[in-house]
Protein backbone atom coordinates (compact mmCIF):
# COMPACT_ATOMS: atom_id res chain seq x y z
CA UNK A 1 0.00 0.00 0.00
CA UNK A 2 1.36 3.33 -0.92
CA UNK A 3 2.18 5.81 1.79
CA UNK A 4 -0.37 8.27 0.42
CA UNK A 5 -3.26 5.86 0.59
CA UNK A 6 -2.22 4.60 4.00
CA UNK A 7 -1.98 8.14 5.29
CA UNK A 8 -5.49 8.87 4.00
CA UNK A 9 -6.78 5.71 5.63
CA UNK A 10 -5.27 6.53 9.01
CA UNK A 11 -6.48 10.08 8.71
CA UNK A 12 -9.99 8.92 7.93
CA UNK A 13 -9.97 6.43 10.78
CA UNK A 14 -8.86 9.00 13.34
CA UNK A 15 -11.38 11.53 12.11
CA UNK A 16 -13.95 8.76 12.18
CA UNK A 17 -12.95 7.96 15.77
CA UNK A 18 -13.75 11.53 16.76
CA UNK A 19 -17.13 11.38 15.07
CA UNK A 20 -17.82 7.97 16.56
CA UNK A 21 -17.08 9.16 20.10
CA UNK A 22 -19.45 12.10 19.74
CA UNK A 23 -22.05 10.10 17.84
CA UNK A 24 -22.24 7.30 20.40
CA UNK A 25 -23.17 9.70 23.18
CA UNK A 26 -25.63 11.41 20.91
CA UNK A 27 -27.22 8.11 20.04
CA UNK A 28 -27.32 6.94 23.67
CA UNK A 29 -29.14 10.06 24.77
CA UNK A 30 -31.53 9.84 21.86
CA UNK A 31 -32.16 6.19 22.50
CA UNK A 32 -33.19 6.80 26.09
CA UNK A 33 -35.03 10.13 26.11
CA UNK A 34 -35.82 10.57 22.39
CA UNK A 35 -34.06 13.91 22.47
CA UNK A 36 -31.75 15.23 19.77
CA UNK A 37 -29.25 16.94 22.00
CA UNK A 38 -27.92 19.93 20.20
CA UNK A 39 -25.69 20.92 23.08
CA UNK A 40 -23.81 17.64 22.70
CA UNK A 41 -21.27 19.15 20.33
CA UNK A 42 -20.49 21.89 22.80
CA UNK A 43 -19.22 19.30 25.25
CA UNK A 44 -16.45 18.70 22.71
CA UNK A 45 -15.54 22.34 23.13
CA UNK A 46 -15.74 22.10 26.92
CA UNK A 47 -13.42 19.10 26.84
CA UNK A 48 -10.92 20.87 24.62
CA UNK A 49 -10.78 24.03 26.70
CA UNK A 50 -10.58 22.28 30.04
CA UNK A 51 -7.64 20.33 28.65
CA UNK A 52 -6.01 23.59 27.65
CA UNK A 53 -6.50 24.90 31.18
CA UNK A 54 -5.02 21.76 32.70
CA UNK A 55 -2.00 21.89 30.38
CA UNK A 56 -1.43 25.44 31.54
CA UNK A 57 -1.55 24.34 35.19
CA UNK A 58 0.79 21.45 34.45
CA UNK A 59 -1.34 18.36 35.05
CA UNK A 60 0.28 15.23 33.60
CA UNK A 61 -1.36 13.84 30.45
CA UNK A 62 -2.86 10.54 31.71
CA UNK A 63 -4.50 12.46 34.55
CA UNK A 64 -5.80 15.05 32.10
CA UNK A 65 -7.68 12.34 30.28
CA UNK A 66 -9.26 11.12 33.49
CA UNK A 67 -10.20 14.63 34.55
CA UNK A 68 -11.66 15.45 31.17
CA UNK A 69 -13.86 12.38 31.38
CA UNK A 70 -15.06 13.58 34.77
CA UNK A 71 -15.61 17.16 33.66
CA UNK A 72 -17.62 16.00 30.67
CA UNK A 73 -19.71 13.70 32.85
CA UNK A 74 -20.45 16.45 35.38
CA UNK A 75 -21.33 18.96 32.65
CA UNK A 76 -23.66 16.46 31.03
CA UNK A 77 -25.41 15.67 34.30
CA UNK A 78 -25.76 19.36 35.05
CA UNK A 79 -27.40 20.06 31.70
CA UNK A 80 -29.72 17.11 32.09
CA UNK A 81 -30.89 17.87 35.59
CA UNK A 82 -31.19 21.65 35.23
CA UNK A 83 -32.70 22.00 31.77
CA UNK A 84 -33.92 18.76 30.30
CA UNK A 85 -35.51 17.02 33.26
CA UNK A 86 -38.13 19.73 33.90
CA UNK A 87 -39.37 19.58 30.31
CA UNK A 88 -39.17 15.84 29.85
CA UNK A 89 -42.88 15.33 29.25
CA UNK A 90 -43.07 18.13 26.66
CA UNK A 91 -43.43 17.56 22.91
CA UNK A 92 -40.31 16.56 20.99
CA UNK A 93 -39.91 19.91 19.32
CA UNK A 94 -39.92 21.70 22.67
CA UNK A 95 -37.04 19.54 23.81
CA UNK A 96 -35.20 20.18 20.61
CA UNK A 97 -35.58 23.94 20.91
CA UNK A 98 -34.41 23.73 24.52
CA UNK A 99 -31.23 21.90 23.48
CA UNK A 100 -30.61 24.57 20.85
CA UNK A 101 -30.99 27.20 23.56
CA UNK A 102 -28.59 25.37 25.86
CA UNK A 103 -26.09 25.17 23.04
CA UNK A 104 -26.36 28.91 22.42
CA UNK A 105 -25.94 29.61 26.13
CA UNK A 106 -22.82 27.44 26.34
CA UNK A 107 -21.27 28.88 23.19
CA UNK A 108 -21.88 32.48 24.12
CA UNK A 109 -20.84 32.02 27.72
CA UNK A 110 -17.61 30.54 26.39
CA UNK A 111 -17.24 33.52 24.09
CA UNK A 112 -17.77 35.81 27.07
CA UNK A 113 -15.18 34.05 29.18
CA UNK A 114 -12.62 33.09 26.57
CA UNK A 115 -13.17 35.56 23.68
CA UNK A 116 -13.56 34.30 20.15
CA UNK A 117 -9.90 34.09 19.26
CA UNK A 118 -8.34 30.84 18.12
CA UNK A 119 -5.98 29.24 20.61
CA UNK A 120 -3.13 26.90 19.90
CA UNK A 121 -3.51 23.44 21.27
CA UNK A 122 -0.43 21.26 21.25
CA UNK A 123 0.06 17.70 22.24
CA UNK A 124 3.46 16.99 23.83
CA UNK A 125 6.33 16.62 21.37
CA UNK A 126 6.56 12.83 21.48
CA UNK A 127 2.96 12.57 20.26
CA UNK A 128 3.83 14.40 17.09
CA UNK A 129 6.46 11.97 15.87
CA UNK A 130 5.76 9.50 13.11
CA UNK A 131 5.63 5.77 13.69
CA UNK A 132 7.03 3.51 10.97
CA UNK A 133 4.75 0.59 10.21
CA UNK A 134 6.32 -1.82 7.73
CA UNK A 135 7.24 0.55 4.92
CA UNK A 136 4.65 3.19 5.69
CA UNK A 137 4.28 5.58 8.59
CA UNK A 138 1.56 7.33 10.52
CA UNK A 139 1.54 10.09 13.08
CA UNK A 140 1.45 8.91 16.68
CA UNK A 141 -1.39 11.30 17.44
CA UNK A 142 -3.63 9.58 14.93
CA UNK A 143 -2.64 6.14 16.20
CA UNK A 144 -3.32 7.10 19.82
CA UNK A 145 -6.67 8.59 18.89
CA UNK A 146 -7.70 5.42 17.09
CA UNK A 147 -6.54 3.08 19.87
CA UNK A 148 -7.93 5.08 22.78
CA UNK A 149 -11.25 5.44 20.99
CA UNK A 150 -11.48 1.70 20.49
CA UNK A 151 -10.63 1.17 24.17
CA UNK A 152 -13.29 3.64 25.32
CA UNK A 153 -15.88 2.12 23.03
CA UNK A 154 -15.04 -1.34 24.36
CA UNK A 155 -15.53 -0.11 27.93
CA UNK A 156 -18.81 1.52 26.92
CA UNK A 157 -20.10 -1.66 25.32
CA UNK A 158 -19.12 -3.59 28.43
CA UNK A 159 -21.11 -1.14 30.57
CA UNK A 160 -24.14 -1.19 28.33
CA UNK A 161 -24.31 -4.93 27.72
CA UNK A 162 -22.75 -6.52 30.81
CA UNK A 163 -23.67 -4.47 33.87
CA UNK A 164 -26.86 -3.77 35.81
CA UNK A 165 -26.67 -0.11 34.88
CA UNK A 166 -26.46 -1.03 31.21
CA UNK A 167 -29.43 -3.34 31.52
CA UNK A 168 -31.38 -0.54 33.17
CA UNK A 169 -30.40 1.78 30.33
CA UNK A 170 -31.52 -0.61 27.66
CA UNK A 171 -34.75 -1.25 29.53
CA UNK A 172 -35.42 2.47 29.80
CA UNK A 173 -34.68 2.95 26.13
CA UNK A 174 -37.07 0.15 25.28
CA UNK A 175 -39.96 1.42 27.36
CA UNK A 176 -39.53 4.10 29.97
CA UNK A 177 -42.83 3.42 31.71
CA UNK A 178 -42.35 -0.31 31.92
CA UNK A 179 -38.82 0.13 33.21
CA UNK A 180 -40.08 2.41 35.95
CA UNK A 181 -42.72 -0.14 36.91
CA UNK A 182 -40.03 -2.81 37.12
CA UNK A 183 -38.24 -0.70 39.70
CA UNK A 184 -35.60 0.89 37.53
CA UNK A 185 -34.68 4.29 38.84
CA UNK A 186 -35.38 6.05 35.57
CA UNK A 187 -34.05 9.46 36.55
CA UNK A 188 -30.76 8.01 37.69
CA UNK A 189 -30.45 5.92 34.56
CA UNK A 190 -31.04 8.91 32.31
CA UNK A 191 -28.54 10.90 34.32
CA UNK A 192 -26.01 8.13 33.85
CA UNK A 193 -26.62 8.06 30.11
CA UNK A 194 -26.01 11.79 29.90
CA UNK A 195 -22.88 11.45 32.04
CA UNK A 196 -21.37 8.68 29.91
CA UNK A 197 -22.28 10.25 26.59
CA UNK A 198 -21.00 13.65 27.61
CA UNK A 199 -17.77 12.23 28.98
CA UNK A 200 -17.08 10.58 25.62
CA UNK A 201 -17.78 13.86 23.82
CA UNK A 202 -15.41 15.71 26.13
CA UNK A 203 -12.62 13.23 25.39
CA UNK A 204 -13.34 13.73 21.71
CA UNK A 205 -12.63 17.39 22.43
CA UNK A 206 -9.12 16.55 23.62
CA UNK A 207 -8.49 14.57 20.45
CA UNK A 208 -10.03 17.28 18.31
CA UNK A 209 -7.64 19.86 19.71
CA UNK A 210 -4.69 17.53 19.28
CA UNK A 211 -5.59 16.66 15.71
CA UNK A 212 -6.34 20.13 14.41
CA UNK A 213 -4.05 22.16 16.65
CA UNK A 214 -6.40 25.08 17.18
CA UNK A 215 -9.55 25.49 19.22
CA UNK A 216 -12.16 28.20 19.67
CA UNK A 217 -15.44 28.48 21.60
CA UNK A 218 -17.58 27.67 18.56
CA UNK A 219 -15.75 24.52 17.54
CA UNK A 220 -18.48 22.25 18.89
CA UNK A 221 -21.05 23.14 16.27
CA UNK A 222 -19.64 21.14 13.39
CA UNK A 223 -18.85 17.92 15.31
CA UNK A 224 -22.30 18.09 16.89
CA UNK A 225 -23.99 18.23 13.50
CA UNK A 226 -21.72 15.59 12.02
CA UNK A 227 -22.38 13.31 14.95
CA UNK A 228 -26.03 13.55 14.07
CA UNK A 229 -25.21 12.64 10.49
CA UNK A 230 -23.16 9.69 11.73
CA UNK A 231 -26.08 8.55 13.87
CA UNK A 232 -28.44 8.75 10.93
CA UNK A 233 -26.05 6.75 8.78
CA UNK A 234 -25.93 4.02 11.39
CA UNK A 235 -29.54 4.26 12.51
CA UNK A 236 -30.43 6.63 15.33
CA UNK A 237 -30.55 5.00 18.74
CA UNK A 238 -28.21 2.13 17.92
CA UNK A 239 -24.79 2.31 19.56
CA UNK A 240 -22.98 0.04 17.14
CA UNK A 241 -24.62 1.87 14.28
CA UNK A 242 -23.46 5.22 15.61
CA UNK A 243 -19.91 3.94 15.91
CA UNK A 244 -19.85 2.53 12.40
CA UNK A 245 -21.60 5.63 11.11
CA UNK A 246 -18.85 7.76 12.64
CA UNK A 247 -16.13 5.74 10.94
CA UNK A 248 -17.95 5.71 7.62
CA UNK A 249 -18.43 9.45 7.77
CA UNK A 250 -14.79 10.10 8.68
CA UNK A 251 -13.50 7.89 5.87
CA UNK A 252 -15.97 9.29 3.36
CA UNK A 253 -14.99 12.82 4.20
CA UNK A 254 -11.28 12.13 3.87
CA UNK A 255 -11.83 10.27 0.62
CA UNK A 256 -13.91 13.16 -0.68
CA UNK A 257 -11.15 15.64 0.04
CA UNK A 258 -8.31 13.32 -0.98
CA UNK A 259 -9.63 11.89 -4.20
CA UNK A 260 -11.57 14.73 -5.77
CA UNK A 261 -9.94 17.75 -7.40
CA UNK A 262 -8.55 20.43 -5.13
CA UNK A 263 -11.11 23.09 -5.97
CA UNK A 264 -13.94 20.94 -4.64
CA UNK A 265 -12.43 20.43 -1.19
CA UNK A 266 -14.07 23.62 0.08
CA UNK A 267 -17.37 21.81 -0.27
CA UNK A 268 -16.40 19.25 2.36
CA UNK A 269 -19.13 20.12 4.85
CA UNK A 270 -21.69 20.56 2.10
CA UNK A 271 -20.84 17.04 0.98
CA UNK A 272 -21.50 15.66 4.44
CA UNK A 273 -24.98 17.14 4.49
CA UNK A 274 -25.76 16.02 0.98
CA UNK A 275 -24.82 12.56 2.17
CA UNK A 276 -27.23 13.00 5.07
CA UNK A 277 -30.10 14.01 2.82
CA UNK A 278 -29.41 11.16 0.42
CA UNK A 279 -29.33 8.61 3.23
CA UNK A 280 -32.49 9.97 4.80
CA UNK A 281 -34.11 9.56 1.42
CA UNK A 282 -32.85 6.15 0.47
CA UNK A 283 -32.66 4.40 3.80
CA UNK A 284 -34.11 6.61 6.53
CA UNK A 285 -33.79 3.97 9.21
CA UNK A 286 -30.03 3.88 8.77
CA UNK A 287 -27.76 1.34 7.20
CA UNK A 288 -27.54 -1.06 10.10
CA UNK A 289 -30.94 -1.03 11.71
CA UNK A 290 -33.51 -3.40 10.40
CA UNK A 291 -36.61 -2.03 11.99
CA UNK A 292 -37.29 1.33 13.56
CA UNK A 293 -40.51 2.74 14.88
CA UNK A 294 -42.15 5.75 13.34
CA UNK A 295 -39.81 8.63 12.70
CA UNK A 296 -42.37 11.28 13.32
Amino acid sequence: MSQYLFQQLVNGLSLGSLYALVAIGFSMIYGIVRLINFAHGDLVMIGAFSTLAMIAVGVPWPLILVFVLMIGAVAGMLIESVVFRPIRGAPQVTGFIATLAVSIVIQNSALLLLTGQQRNFVFPAFMRQRVPLGGVSASLTDMVIICLTLLLIAILFFIVYRTRLGTAMRATAENLMAARLMGVSVNRTILAAFAIGSALAAVAGVFWGGKFGQIDPLLGFVPGLKAFVACVIGGVGSLGGAMLGGYILGLAEVLFVGLLPQELSGYRDAFVFLLLIVILLVKPSGLFVRHVEDRA
Binding site: I36, Q92, V93, F96, L225, F228, V229, V232, E263, G266, Y267, R268, D269, A270, V272, F273, L274, L276, I277, L280, L281, P284, R295, A296
Partner: peptide, 28 residues
Protein backbone atom coordinates in the same frame (compact mmCIF):
# COMPACT_ATOMS: atom_id res chain seq x y z
CA UNK B 1 -39.17 17.14 -2.33
CA UNK B 2 -36.65 15.09 -0.38
CA UNK B 3 -36.53 17.13 2.81
CA UNK B 4 -40.23 17.55 3.54
CA UNK B 5 -40.64 13.82 3.85
CA UNK B 6 -38.83 14.17 7.15
CA UNK B 7 -40.47 15.14 10.42
CA UNK B 8 -39.56 16.80 13.66
CA UNK B 9 -35.89 17.16 14.36
CA UNK B 10 -34.89 15.26 11.22
CA UNK B 11 -36.31 18.11 9.22
CA UNK B 12 -34.61 20.58 11.55
CA UNK B 13 -31.19 19.05 11.03
CA UNK B 14 -31.71 18.64 7.29
CA UNK B 15 -32.59 22.33 6.96
CA UNK B 16 -29.63 23.20 9.16
CA UNK B 17 -27.58 21.20 6.67
CA UNK B 18 -29.10 23.34 3.95
CA UNK B 19 -27.62 26.40 5.65
CA UNK B 20 -24.20 24.75 5.65
CA UNK B 21 -24.56 23.79 1.99
CA UNK B 22 -25.61 27.27 0.91
CA UNK B 23 -22.88 28.86 3.00
CA UNK B 24 -20.19 26.73 1.46
CA UNK B 25 -21.59 27.47 -2.00
CA UNK B 26 -21.41 31.17 -1.23
CA UNK B 27 -17.87 30.78 0.08
CA UNK B 28 -16.53 28.69 -2.77
Amino acid sequence: FPVLRLRGHYLAVATLGLIVIIQSLATN
